[in-house]
Computed example of a mutant assay.
Amino acid sequence: MKIINGTIAAPAGFYADGFHSGLKRKRKDIGWIYSKYPAQAAGVFTTNAVQAAPIQVTKGALASDTIQAIVVNSGNANACTGKNGILHAQEMQRLAAEKLSIPTDAVAVASTGVIGQELPMGKIKKGILGLYKTEGTPQSFHEAILTTDTRTKEIVVEGTIGGTKVTMAGVAKGSGMIHPNMATMLAFITTDAVIEKSLLQEALKKVTDRTFNQITVDGDTSTNDMVLLLANGAAGHSVLQKETADYDEFTMMLSVVMEELAKMIAQDGEGATKLIEANVIHGKDQLTARMIAKKIVGSSLVKTAMFGADPNWGRIICAIGYADPSINPEKVNISIGGLPVLLNSQPQSFEEMKMREILVQDKIVITVDLQEGTGKGTAWGCDLTYKYVEINALYHT
């Protein structure tokens, strides 16, 4: 398997486009992904009890046999908009299906942006009519889904399954209100692999738990967001079977795509200047290790310390303690950027200049050894800056 250049339309049979419809002042704000062939589809959605209209409509679409398109708008979340919100999401679905000449229930819908405002359907219609299933403009899609993001997030990998070349691509948006089980993020993954729907859903859920569900920016869980995975079978190999080398290759490709997108989202947190990675090893079990890692990167005190280049390991061990009160507090090892600051819960002296060099980097790795078992987990977050407050204080305006 290798990472290659390309876009979300890189797998065989996929197309993508983006358009500026006027939902946002300048940037593209509506886009779609289209598969020439009906695709098996899997999805993971926000756990927020308040779920936006596009989430509800897309869940209905996934209950059908296959999906052939995803239509997405930014600039307006179509959340908390009542019955009209559902009608508008369904109209997006219908307009895209009509333009593509496919069944209405073969279209998934996603929205992101300001909550509580109805979609301006005149602009939505204009946008969908301006989209095309061409090979020349797939790069426009990853621009059309952005909100406060400062950069696009995309990755393409290539592997071999059953002696056949298989391609998988991923694209995401996400910058604030990031605290999945899912959060304010949209991620779309395409592949030409051949796999049944139930196994596709199982693979997506399993990999989501250790990738997207391990990122946090600010601890807020949103109303809109989702991960959708489409597999159109255009590669033509034999149907993937669980517990085979080919299935392992598929899940490895999926893990790389989703982990890289997760890190891109964490690093692009609103106002962020640094990516924080927490690795917990020798925990009681995998779930506990993942939970502790996420508590570390989610701690406002840890995040502000990293912003200020302050090696305050006390904030780290504090987060470990409230994440799992049953840990042995006498056996914790902590290092920052590979430099030990705590061994068997005893403070370690370190060179301040060397630590300073570590903490001013744009990626900081915190490693925690609990010395309790074989569990390990990783989580990603970002520092908490003055800019984050500014962005969110002015978001609606």
Rank of each mutant, 00 (worst) to 15 (best):
I296W: 11
G85A: 08
D149V: 10
I102H: 06
M355G: 12
A79Y: 09
H20S: 14
G338W: 14
Q90C: 14
Q68C: 08
N392Y: 05
V256N: 04
G116I: 12
I178E: 11
W313A: 03
G43T: 04
Q68P: 01
T46W: 05
T147I: 05
R210Y: 03
G236H: 11
V280W: 06
L359A: 10
I327D: 01
T164Q: 04
A235V: 01
Y395N: 01
S198H: 15
R25K: 15
E91F: 03
K24V: 02
I364R: 03
A39Y: 09
T251N: 01
G283C: 02
G162M: 00
P120T: 02
N76G: 07
L229M: 15
Q371P: 01
I155G: 03
A319P: 11
V257T: 11
E202M: 13
D218P: 11
G162F: 00
A144Y: 01
G373K: 03
L204S: 10
D105G: 01
F14C: 13
D268F: 04
L384W: 14
I296Y: 06
D246Q: 07
A110G: 15
I281P: 05
A10Y: 04
C382H: 09
G75P: 02
V171N: 09
S349T: 13
V389M: 10
T397L: 13
L287N: 12
V256R: 09
I276P: 11
V368D: 04
M306E: 05
K125G: 08
L100N: 02
N392I: 07
D65A: 14
S198N: 15
D65Y: 08
E330P: 00
Q214P: 02
G31M: 06
A10V: 05
L146F: 02
N181Q: 14
V166L: 10
D248C: 05
L370N: 06
G337F: 07
E196F: 01
P54K: 07
